[in-house]
Simulated scan of single mutants.
Amino acid sequence: MSLFRQLRFHTTVNEMRMLPYEGVEVAFAGRSNAGKSSAINTLADHNRLAFVSKTPGRTQHINYFSFGEGRFLVDLPGYGYAQVPEAIRNHWEQLLGNYLATRDNLIGLVLLMDARHPLKPLDVRMLDWFIPTGRPVHVLLTKADKLTRQEQAKTLAAVKAKLDTWPQCTAQLFSSLKKTGIEEAEAVVGGWFAQAHDAVSQTDDADQ
């Protein structure tokens, strides 16, 4: 069975103190209209695993999904939706910033961006929060089906060029509608979990 098809809902939290203590996790983040929930559902081959709202910005909590064996996908609240009340938006941004900068269990970030509008200021802010941790980032350029093949190639090349200053960043095209980019995304996330497992094994060997 593929990695993402093992996903099952685990828990929902809205404060840092409520986060699970054990396991390793990969976070999915993106603007409220980037198609994050649709991408998670597509990767998991499950239509209703992650909630897809007709009103961007409705997901106000951190949702945990389990791959099993102490591995989690963390669905972070969408950001940047103007109609969310300022107090709630500030709470989200503080929660996201603290989580990305301080969460020891976090081994990588999948940052979703609409391929037609990549690297908006809030996306760059997310990178600024996370890059100092030294952990990898993989950018999913969603809704790639909205672009022609020539536009897709041009956009991907431009994003990769802008990310070139951060060696731990990679990028790819993705389409939930056409179900393209699934294998590449799974290979990246699966590789992160494998590296985390190897690191734990080496630590255990050194302690013996």
Results as ranks from 00 to 15, higher is better:
Phe9Lys: 04
Tyr21Val: 09
Phe174Lys: 05
Asp123Ile: 09
Phe4Met: 08
Leu106Asn: 14
Gly78Arg: 05
His138Asn: 08
Ala115Val: 00
Met113Ala: 03
Leu49Asp: 07
Thr148His: 02
Gly80Ile: 07
Gly80Phe: 08
Ala171Tyr: 07
Leu49Lys: 09
Val124Ser: 05
Phe72Ile: 04
Asn98Phe: 00
Phe174Gly: 10
Asp75Trp: 09
His46Met: 04
Gln202Pro: 03
Thr11Met: 09
Val26Ser: 09
Lys146His: 05
Ser32Glu: 07
Ala196Cys: 02
Trp129Cys: 04
Glu22Leu: 10
Trp192His: 09
Gly78Tyr: 03
Asp198Met: 08
Val139Thr: 04
Phe193Pro: 12
Lys54Ser: 06
Gly68Ile: 09
Ala199Pro: 08
Ala199Thr: 13
Asn105Arg: 15
Ile131Glu: 15
Val188Gly: 01
Ile62Phe: 07
Val124Gln: 13
Gly181Met: 08
Lys120Tyr: 03
Gly30Ala: 03
Ala44Ser: 09
Asp205Ala: 12
Gly30Ile: 01
Lys120Val: 13
Arg135Met: 13
Ala87Tyr: 07
Ile107Pro: 06
Thr142Trp: 04
Pro20His: 05
Lys120Pro: 02
Val200Gln: 08
Pro77Arg: 01
Arg116Pro: 09
Glu93Lys: 10
Pro136Thr: 06
Arg48Asp: 15
Leu76Asp: 15
Gly191Ala: 02
Leu147Lys: 00
Phe4Ser: 04
Asn33His: 09
Asp128Thr: 15
Ala194Gly: 01
Ala115Arg: 01
Arg103Asn: 14
Asp205Met: 07
Val84Ile: 15
Lys162Arg: 15
Phe65Leu: 15
Leu141Gly: 04
Glu183Ile: 02
Val13Arg: 00
Asp145Pro: 08
Asp104Glu: 15
Tyr79Pro: 08
Ala101Met: 13
Thr148Gln: 04
Glu15Thr: 11
Arg103Cys: 12
Ala196Glu: 08
Asp207Ala: 11
Met18Gly: 01
Asn47Arg: 15
Thr102Cys: 10
Val189Met: 07
Gln208Ile: 01
Arg116Met: 01
Trp166Cys: 05
Met18Cys: 13
